[in-house]
Design a protein around this nucleic acid. Structure first.
Length: 526
DNA sequence: AGCATTGACATTTACAAGAC
DNA sequence: GTCTTGTAAATGTCAATGCT
């Protein structure tokens, strides 16, 4: 414990001494260190051993990576590695050093990858085994360096310890280099799963082109079905550009690292987008049960990077050229928004400054709000206690005919939601030709319930926080006394719904474990 | 299986009016 | 000026909810 504390103190000291870290951040780190030191001394004094440190506020690692991504600070390779150390340690020692991972991949021991496509030196490499050998030299070089860092006594910092930047590189290009390192890590995790994961990943066997053709055909089918719904309600789509989209996604599961495997988005001008995506993690059985998609089906499909590129191109193309907001409506939008920003946070796309403008225009809106705006007497489903606003229950309520709609495929659910929205509108509003006007009105009157994609990403990328971010990030108190306490003692208010915090407090109560609450200055007060 | 949000209900705070 | 009291607003707690 003592050693860990010393190490932690040293790394903080290191960062505090870096010239380019802004003063408030230094203060933040300094406070952390001082608090830890104080509590450690205190524990010695009162004879109560410290067994764990619970960090309950801004995670320094997250903070570090926001700095990496922002324009504030470019880390050296050494700094990067220090923070990646723990994550890599086990991997390197058990797998890389023994070198069996490569053997496994080259021998194709019962396991193989989906057809991973990437560009290397301008050439598209489709076969992952080939990719392994091409990258191997680079990987070994990287890991040798990391191993040196794990044994810090043997490590001597040299000129070589920086990322390979050149003077002529623009800020964007430099960030791209850093992101490439993250990408490399991701590739490794795919291979790690492929070679040593419990579940086999399937080889596409050259299906890629055929699958892409099929996806485009499915997209046409989806578009046609979507336009049929317009006709059914005698509402013709406005063929010009339109800033309202309906979206739905299918994912690998409900875990926090779940990836999107199918994405459908319809624009209310009648255009539609549909793609499947080959995930880098296994699809959970629960998920397969719902959407009927398996790893085998998806092998050979595009990886998310490509789907993401095409998706945002679609959004931009269909919406107006001005700076007007782009609205994306989804049922329980926070789920879909969360998944999209999860992917964006790891992609190079979000690093393009030209893309930031698009991100900042995109606003998500939850369709549940529309139905809740009028008090419906919804039935209570057997296993629930409250009236349910799930798509299924709404459809039952409105007696919507679901024939021909493939429920729990993303395209099916978009159609389904669209149909329910139209039905709701026709039932409750007199003028059936003003559906768009009605939607715009809903969005206008629920401005507080619009959630920007930019907002969820801004904290990760260290982009300049706009009012929206500030409003959501800082817990402000209207009660003066609370406010003054918070400010005087520089207390971070913890979200009390956080299970992790609950767990920590429970441990403190039941096992009488000592606990450290770190008091920091909130970084958003900068 | 995780997570953010919501609403019902409980508790705390701010503040004004009235009594002394 | 100080204390009590009533009330509205602010805040906290907890369980329920949607999505794959």
């Amino acid at each position: 414990m003592k050693q860990s504390l010393e190490q932690f103190g040293k790394s903080i000291e290191y960062f505090c001494n870096l010239y380019s870290i802004p003063q408030p951040t230094k203060l933040h780190l300094k406070t952390n260190r001082e608090t830890i030191t104080y509590l450690f001394d205190l524990s010695n004094e009162i004879g109560c051993p410290l067994t764990s440190i619970a960090h309950l506020s801004t995670n320094p690692v997250e903070l570090f990576f926001s700095l990496v991504r922002s324009k504030v600070h470019y880390p050296s390779y050494y700094e990067f590695c220090i923070y990646e150390k723990s994550a890599y340690k086990e991997l390197i020692k058990s797998k890389i050093v023994q070198n069996n991972r490569y053997e496994a991949s080259i021998k194709k021991v019962n396991k193989c990858y989906g057809s991973l496509q990437t560009k290397l030196d301008g050439n598209v490499i489709t076969e992952s085994v080939e990719l392994v050998s091409k990258y191997r030299e680079e990987e070994v070089r990287v890991f040798e360096r990391i191993i040196k860092i794990i044994e810090p006594d043997e490590y001597e910092e040299s000129e070589d310890s920086s990322f390979p930047f050149t003077d002529s590189m623009s800020a964007d290009e430099r960030r791209r280099v850093i992101t490439l390192t993250f990408y490399l890590k991701r590739i490794l995790s795919i291979r790690e799963l492929s070679c040593f994961g419990e579940q086999t990943r399937f080889k596409a066997s050259g299906r890629t082109a055929l699958q892409y053709k099929q996806v485009l055909e499915d997209q046409e089918k989806f578009k046609k079905q979507f336009n049929d719904v317009f006709e059914k309600f005698e509402t013709q789509p406005d063929q010009s550009k339109c800033n309202i989209f309906i979206l739905d996604s299918e994912t690998t599961g409900l875990t926090s690292n779940a990836e999107i495997i199918e994405l459908s988005c319809a624009c209310l001008n009648g255009e539609a987008f549909y793609r499947k995506s080959n995930p880098t993690i296994s699809i959970t059985p629960e998920s397969t049960k719902i959407n009927n998609l398996t790893s085998h089906d998806l092998a050979g499909h595009q990886y998310w990077e490509k789907v993401e590129e095409e998706f945002f191109n679609f959004i931009v193309q269909q919406s107006s050229d001005d700076d007007a907001p782009i609205y994306i409506i989804a049922h329980n939008e926070k789920y879909d928004r969360g998944r999209i920003s999860f992917h964006l946070a790891k992609s190079t796309k979000a690093l393009e400054s030209s893309f930031h403008k698009t991100i900042s225009r995109i606003k998500f809106f939850d369709s549940i709000n529309i139905f809740k705006s009028i008090k419906l007497v919804l039935p209570v489903v057997s296993d629930k206690k409250k009236e349910s606003y799930s798509l299924d229950n709404l459809a039952t309520f409105f007696k919507i005919n679901t024939d021909g709609i493939n429920r729990h495929s993303s395209s099916g659910d978009v159609l389904f939601l669209f149909e329910i929205l139209l039905f709701f509108f026709h039932k409750n509003y007199k003028d059936p030709n003003n559906f768009l006007k009605f939607l715009f009105n809903c969005l206008e009157t629920n401005k507080k319930k619009l959630y920007g994609l930019y907002c969820s990403l801004a904290t990760k990328f260290g982009l300049l926080a706009d009012d929206e971010v500030l409003e959501k990030k800082i817990k402000s108190f209207k009660t003066p006394i609370l406010n003054s306490v918070i400010q005087t003692f520089k207390i971070d208010i913890l979200p009390n719904k956080n299970d992790n915090n609950k767990r920590i407090f429970k441990e403190m109560e039941t096992e009488k474990k000592p606990i450290i609450i770190i008091i920091t200055c909130p970084i958003y007060t900068i």
